[in-house]
Amino acid sequence: MVKMKYLIIALLIVMVGILATLLFFPSEEKKVKKRFAHLSEHMSKDLGENTFIMANKIKRISALFGENCNFTVSDYSLSGNYTREEISGIALRGRAHFSTLGLKFYDLKVSFPEKDLAQVNLTARLTGKSVYGEHVDETRELICLLKKIEKKWLFSSFEVIEVLKR
């Protein structure tokens, strides 16, 4: 009976250990997915967002990117290589066009083609209302690259897949 008690306690300790490991030491895939959750959270904008919140979100968006990030978007003139500071400016101007904004990511498939490099195929959906009252609802498939720099996964490339090429 005593042996049984110790066995149950040992099993409980092992289970708690496994849970703690999963919780406090997430896999690299989870860490990469978390970056997208943060980008989604910081890009979103509620009606009447104040300047303090806006500045804080822009700062946090900037921290998600590497020193340089490459954008490939065929329909828009946005394509090019941008520094972290330029990305902050783009995010600031982009968000200013909207009174409400939501950016959600779906179907994330993470792979690691090289050490400290993650490739993510995903669907991005941008919804919102412009300051002129126009409703926006755009969905695109993306390929993103993230590099692990100083133990942090940072965005280094965004490519919008051109499914219908005019």
């Binding site: 779906y106 995903l122 499914v163």
Partner: peptide, 11 residues
């Protein structure tokens, strides 16, 4: 049916 994005968005 054209797969536009991911596995759910079709045109």
């Amino acid at each position: 049916v054209v797969r536009f994005a991911g596995t759910k968005v079709m045109l």
